[in-house]
Nucleic acid binder design. Structure first.
Lengths: 159, 159
DNA sequence: GATGCTCCTATCGACTTGATGGGATAAGTG
DNA sequence: CACTTATCCCATCAAGTCGATAGGAGCATC
């Protein structure tokens, strides 16, 4: 199962992609993303910080600061995001390409039946998640009613 | 990631399959499985109990008691075992067939880009894990040197 | 009826998850 | 220059899960 942190991360990144593709090049406020996607604001901050450490987003400080994708949305995949937040996609350490670690129990990796199945699962999952890009997701995704433009008028929309 | 409980469960079940296919029909001692597979004995007890509640193994009490597969080894899949121990294979509750639960965040399941990718991952993983049977695993798996026969002579092999 | 197995529940420590809080730092704005 | 407003960073928190262990009750065989 994905952690909800990773699910939030996916949604936040898709949100960034959607607003980046509108021609605007200014970064997006955390608060705006949080509100649109229904993510606890402080929690989203941690998530974006983590994504930044993995080089998936860039941040700007100061009054007109905020976050933006670090690369073009068609170059960022779901796999990148999930790996950054939840770690390896593989079912076992001994079948991870990004964080391989030998497993204690199985004597012979070449013949281990469990490992064999897990390699196939990892290959299949990775293929799917590495071909799912933010660009595609931003196009496909349901925009919450009319794609809400950034509020810059100062009127907080909720009490 | 699989929990180590699920990994133990897979190994234990393969062990049972290997010894069931030798013609013997008597149940296997927990202690023997634990020793062969290097699983903490008490922990394995819990795991087998859980597998029994899910109808994957049957138990016999008393002096010559023990565990045996509930069905033929070609009718038990890796998916059955993982689901019994770790729960749904799906990455999100909203893409699980065995434990579906609507997800709060996404307004429209039909267009949710995250969900769409997760459905594909679940389908691919399930297809692989549902076609991996114990029978096949028991044949393929590396037997730890010569397949150690059950000790019935009373000499405990370790201090 | 003694033996030796499963059965059941309870507990444990360590870690992870989801979330919050306070304040430091930086960049625009008047 | 000072003020506003945003990110940044660290620290902490409660609740839950994971991996493992413990003690004793129940039961079939010898």
């Amino acid at each position: 199962m994905l952690t909800s942190k990773a699910k939030y991360a996916l949604r936040a990144m898709i949100d960034l992609a959607a607003y980046a593709s509108e021609g605007e090049r200014r970064p997006v406020f955390i608060g705006d993303v949080a509100e649109r996607q229904g993510i606890p604001r402080r929690f989203l901050e941690n998530i974006l910080l983590e994504l930044r450490k993995h080089g998936l987003v860039v941040s700007h400080r100061g009054k007109l600061g905020g976050y933006a994708l670090a690369k073009a949305p068609d170059l960022i995949t779901f796999a990148d995001i999930i790996r950054a937040i939840d770690g390896p996609l593989a079912m076992t350490p001994c079948t991870s390409r990004t964080a391989y670690r030998r497993c204690e129990d199985c004597k012979d990796e070449a013949t281990c039946a469990v490992r064999k199945a897990m390699v196939r699962v990892r290959d299949a999952s990775a293929a799917i998640l590495e071909s799912a890009t933010l660009a595609e997701a931003a196009r496909t995704d349901a925009q919450p009613s009319a794609p809400q433009l950034r509020r810059r008028d100062g009127s907080s929309s909720a009490a």
